[in-house]
């Protein structure tokens, strides 16, 4: 399953996509500690797989919470994506 967390508003589309088919194969869950804004947590999803999700009350402000990791200049690899061993995380912006 592709789970898209985030939103679209007048200024653009801000989604973090977690590919749960890849995510459920991972037991390391480095993403949780890697994110400086603490956006990720591991849950048992509706299909009883252990996967990462974006914490519900953080989903409406990811454009702002992710901003420090997305400087306009010299943008390094995002810590969440770098930490994710199964490469299950994508950002839309």
């Amino acid at each position: 399953m592709k789970a898209n967390y985030g939103y679209m508003d007048g200024s653009g589309e801000y989604y973090i996509t977690i590919d749960t088919d890849k995510c459920m194969e991972c037991s390391e869950h480095f993403c949780v500690k890697a994110c400086p804004a603490g956006l990720f947590r591991i849950i048992e999803d509706d299909y009883e797989d252990m996967v990462a999700e974006i914490i519900p009350n953080k989903r409406q402000a990811i454009k702002y919470d992710c901003a420090p990791c997305k400087p306009l200049e010299d943008r390094p690899e995002l810590p969440c994506m770098a930490a994710c061993t199964p490469q299950a995380i994508e950002h839309s912006w």
Partner: peptide, 12 residues
């Protein structure tokens, strides 16, 4: 203010 500050962090 918090939204403006996080936008500002993108330019430093």
């Amino acid at each position: 203010a918090s939204r403006i500050v996080s936008m500002t962090r993108r330019v430093g």
